[in-house]
Amino acid sequence: MEKRTVYAWGLAILCFVVLMIVTPVIPQSEEYHDFADKREFFGIPNTLNVVSNFPFLVIGLIGLILCYHGNYFRLSLQGEVWGWTCFFIGVAAVAVGSSYYHLKPNDARLVWDRLPMTIAFTSIIAIFIIERIDEQKGTVSIIPLLLAGIISILYWRFFDDLRPYALVQFLPCIAIPVMAILLPPMYTHSTYWLWAAGFYLLAKVEEAMDKVIYEWTHHIVSGHTLKHLCAAMVPVFLTLMLAKRSVETDRRSLLETWKVSWTKVKANDVKVETYTCTYSNVPVVESD
């Protein structure tokens, strides 16, 4: 392993240890399980919060099939195949784990809700390292990142402390848009990453406003149900990106692309010439 890689991992671990020392413990609040919509249809408790997970299963299975069938995603690197496989397995498992949790919300079942989401989060980070930094380092990081996610879940469950899990969940929300904008891509259609990040952010807002949205919609749909639907748009956009993208010949970051576009817009504004029309007096011919 290169010295720079060792230093990077060492620095990351040091920052994590310092963070754990200086920040207070974050216990799991029992209020988290108190969702706004508790209605039961067809004998299914909390029906809408349960069935709204179905899109995760659909898109997860579609993604897994396309990873290995017909080369639709054009995954040229083995690390990419492993990373996207883990991602779509995590997405499909979200449907099972989250539905199981919402049938009877409690801490024990919440483990199975959060575990597949963590697999999806950590897989995405590894994929980004493969595509934007280094293929070998990204491939090697898949298993350590997955283990870090699983350990964060176990740490929360045994010590009632959400700090490691919160780091695993929210770090990709910050790192992925930043890397998507600043680092040159291997493939086209990088803006799909930003769409995915935007929908995930919207999903977190809807989750926080669960009861408020339930009141706003006159008890038709809750914020948590909408959260599931918006979060499912994340793998939808990433699947569309995989299907549409091609190898980027001109590896230019989104930030550089935006700068070039802005420069062209400014240049066009400068080059616009103004024209003035002058009207001459037309002699009037008097009729006899």
Rank of each mutant, 00 (worst) to 15 (best):
F121S: 00
T122F: 01
S123I: 10
S123D: 07
I125H: 01
A126W: 00
I127W: 02
F128E: 01
E131N: 06
R132N: 09
D134H: 11
Q136H: 10
Q136E: 10
K137F: 06
G138M: 03
G138E: 04
G138N: 04
T139Q: 04
I142V: 14
P144N: 01
L145C: 01
L146R: 02
L147W: 08
A148M: 09
I151W: 14
I153K: 05
L154E: 12
L154W: 13
Y155T: 15
Y155H: 11
F158W: 13
L162P: 02
L162W: 04
P164E: 07
Y165I: 11
Y165V: 12
Y165R: 05
A166S: 09
V168K: 01
A175K: 06
P177A: 07
P177K: 02
P177D: 04
A180N: 09
P184D: 01
P184Q: 02
P185N: 05
T188H: 05
W193R: 13
W193K: 09
L194Q: 08
W195I: 12
W195R: 09
A196P: 05
Y200Q: 10
A203M: 06
A203C: 10
K204E: 12
K204V: 15
E207A: 08
E207R: 01
M209L: 15
K211H: 15
Y214S: 07
E215M: 12
H219E: 09
V221W: 06
V221K: 02
